[in-house]
């Protein structure tokens, strides 16, 4: 964990209520895809945890949906403004287990962490397939960004307006894979858990107090004992999950 002051370089809408914020600052403590940062926002007591979409030396990309006070305040911030951010939080995905043909499954705002994960898997020599699930065409974001990485990118929409009609699990039926990584709403995670035969990793969300393992606000029960989503998570392996 590192605390740093980041400067906003851009903050723009990807859809009506999903934004991409690019920041400049010390990203040296972000070690794995699937980790998150915790942002102090003026006027709000608790920090806001947001998963890392992409990071390189000094550059951090976050994608967030405006769902409450915190994200609404974030959405109004402009280039040049500064944010106090704790970086390098959470365990992140373990890519050593991916095999050569992993599938990356992101649903809605579960899509962002898949981007850095995809880049890391490609660097490692794997050939990932990406499945991005949305409700409707106007909710879709980052399709082109994934395609630019040169990976097969499948889109599902619940209303069938783009790509495969239905859920991410409908796309899963059409491909072969060695392993899976997923992040998205709880019903999606459960559906993936029930429909995949291979092993995999799940990124969970929980209302957090501190994000640093101090308050025990985000604890969950697993087969291997009690875990804090912020510290021993947010990524859990299939074999340890208790629904």
């Amino acid at each position: 964990m590192k605390q740093g002051i980041f400067t906003i370089k851009s903050n723009k809408n990807l859809t009506a209520n999903v934004l991409e914020m690019i920041l400049e600052g010390d990203t040296s403590d972000i070690k794995r895809p699937g980790q998150f940062v915790n942002i102090k926002i003026d006027g709000l007591y608790l920090r806001r945890p947001i998963s890392v979409c992409y990071c390189s030396e000094n550059k951090l990309t976050l994608i967030y949906k405006t769902v409450g006070k915190g994200t609404e305040k974030l959405s109004k911030m402009r280039e040049g403004e500064r944010l106090d951010i704790l970086t390098g939080l959470g365990n992140g995905f373990n890519i050593a287990k991916a095999g050569d043909k992993p599938v990356l499954i992101g649903g809605g705002v579960g899509v962002p962490p898949m981007y850095l994960l995809c880049k890391k898997l490609i660097e490692k020599g794997a050939l990932p397939t990406v499945i991005l699930g949305f409700n409707t065409a106007d909710e879709i974001f980052y399709k082109e960004e994934f395609e630019k990485l040169g990976v097969k990118t499948m889109i599902t929409t619940v209303d069938g307006s783009v790509g495969i009609k239905g859920f991410v699990t409908d796309a899963l039926k059409e491909i072969d894979y060695t392993y899976y990584f997923c992040c998205g709403p709880m019903p999606m995670l459960k559906a993936v858990y029930n429909s995949c035969d291979t092993s995999g990793q799940f990124s969970f969300e929980e209302r957090m107090g501190c994000g640093i393992g101090a308050c025990m606000g985000c604890s969950c029960k697993t087969i291997t004992g009690y875990k804090r989503i912020c510290t021993e998570g947010p990524v859990l392996e299939k074999e340890e999950i208790l629904w």
Binding site: L44, Y45, L46, R207, G209, C215, G217, C220
Partner: peptide, 18 residues
């Protein structure tokens, strides 16, 4: 869970002595 709720200048916790 949820065990945490934010408030003005504070928070509510209901961890329950884990």
């Amino acid at each position: 869970t949820p065990r945490i709720a934010e408030c003005e200048a504070g928070l509510i916790n209901s961890v329950g002595l884990q």
